[in-house]
Structure formats: structure tokens, C-alpha cells
Amino acid sequence: MEPVARVRAQTPETGSPTRIALRRLRRDPTALLCAGTVLFFVLVAVFAPLLAALAGQDPLTHHFELIDDGTSLPLVGMTPEHWFGVEPRLGRDLFARWAFGARPSLLVAAVATTVSTLVGVTVGLVAGFVGGRVDRVLSWLVDLVLSLPYLLFAIATPATLMAVVGLTPDDAEPSVVSEIRFYSLIIVLSTFGWAGLARLIRGEVLSLREREFIAAARVLGVPTRRVLTRELLPNLVAPIVVSVSMALPGYVVAEAGLTFLGVGLTEPTPSWGVTIASAVSAYESVPHYLWIPVLSVTALVLALSLLGDAVRDAFDPKTRR
């Protein structure tokens, strides 16, 4: 490998693909703006209790005194006490619900991305490297998962999970239901998320395993596990990073969307999807009730996807200038 590195040293871009990509990202204004937006929402989610305390509110307290008895609409707009106003009917503070609502989106997306990436990379590595019957079984599994109707399973899974733990929606505590739904979201998104990455990694491994450095490692008697983790994995950083950066916005949308449909998180958990679903009925009288979570989820997803595109371009050798 040494002589190659020395030849490369004369071209303007040097270092590992990861280092080149990072340098390119630092010079990309769109990527920086998007990274800033994502960081903002991550900070809001992490410091949600602090922000709510700063505003002197919490997401669960009802303020019936601020609600009109007849129309059940709020009597106040955005005030120094309630920065984003209060919810119709129950009068819960919307700023606190917005700050806490950032949490499930990011948490579900982060956990689902981690699980599906770990499973996808492992399956892809094993299928591509071991080959034979193992590869046939794993590839069939990938094809099976990719040909199932994901949205219908996203509806069926929480229903089944409730039945598996022996609960029915009629008699279960709302907070227990919401917790089960949280796990069901992660199960569904991870189950349907790993297959695409596994197929990608398998293809990469199939071409990499015929290369000389792998043959050399095997001749030297390096154990298979070490070949997989030390020789193959470092060469797969680019496809993995790109796939993660594309998966994250998808999972944020999936969480908000499924929650909006009523098959994701439920009351009393604060979540943007829950707020959007209940704000639809009051969109004319209290527009900011709908628009704040809608714009937040849109901004977060837009920033994540444009950042994903920038990451993909930064890792793409064809766009090297």
C-alpha cells in the first residue's frame, strides 16, 4: 500500500476517504447550514426539560383556566408565560410539548438506524464473505423483507405486540400503550430497514473478497473474524456512512408519519406527530398549533436529507475536484 500513498501525495486531496469527505463537508456551506439545523434540534431534544423549566412550564399540566368553556379554544395566544400558547381543550403548554416532542423523533430514528445498520452490515458481511448455502438463505431473507408491504406491517405490529403481552387497548394504561408503541416503531423500522443495506454490503464484499490484500491476509492465517473486522470493514466505511445519512431522515419521517396516522406514539407522550394529528381539527382557529410542529419536522427532515446528499457527494470519488 505504501507506494500508492506516496503517488497520491502529489494530488491536492490526500488522506483516507473519510478524511477527504470530512474536509469537503467543512467547505460546503449547505452541509454546514444543515448540520447546524440538525444540531439545533438535537440540543432542543437533549435539553427539553431545561428549556421547559426556563419557560416555567411542563408538557403534561392542564390549564383549564385558559380555555374557553363553550368553544374549548384557548383564550391566550403566544404570551410570556406560554411562549407558543396553549393547546385547545386541555390547555397544555405548547412550547414544552414542542421541546419534548423533538425527543421521540430523534430517539426512534437514532435507535432504528443503529439497529438496522448493525444487522445490515453483519448480514451483508457474512452473506458476501461466507457465500454458498448461508448466502442463499440470507439473500432470500433480504428479498423476502424487501417484498413485504412495510406500511401494512407497521399497522399490524403494534396490534400484535399488544396481544402478545396480553393487553387490549380498552383496558391498558395510555402510558403503557405508548411505551409498547415506541418499541413497536423501533421493531418495525429496524426489521424493514436492514435489508437494503445488507444487499449493498453483500455486493461490495463480493468484489472486495477477491482482492489481493484479502487473499494475503488469509494466506497469512489471519482468522476469519479478523479478516471481516480489520480488513473488510474499513473498506466499507463509505457505503455505511452514506446509508446511515440517508436512513436517518427516513426514520424521522416514519416516526412522525406513523404517529400522525395513530399507529405510532399516543397520548400522553409529547410527540410532533401526536400534536399534528390533534391540531388538524383546529387548524383555522389556532394555526400555530399545527404549523409549529409541521415546520419543525419539515426543517429537521429537509436538513437531514440535504446533509445526507452532501455526505454522499463528499464520499463519491467521481465528484473529486
Binding site: L151, L152, D170, G262
Partner: peptide, 29 residues
């Protein structure tokens, strides 16, 4: 079909959810 499945979910109507999943999979394949 989507609304049918969502309503079935809201009423915990398992046979309908199961039927939709099956029909959806067959349609897709």
C-alpha cells in the same frame, strides 16, 4: 384499503388487519 386497515387497528379488529396484510403482500409480489 389503507383506511380500512387503520380503522381495523383503531377497533383492534385483528382478522381485518391480517387479511389486509396478506392481500397487500400478494398484490406487491
Amino acid at each position: 384499503l389503507g383506511t380500512l386497515t387503520l380503522n381495523a387497528f383503531a377497533q383492534n379488529d385483528m382478522p381485518v388487519i391480517m387479511g389486509s396484510v396478506l392481500v397487500g403482500a400478494v398484490l406487491l409480489v
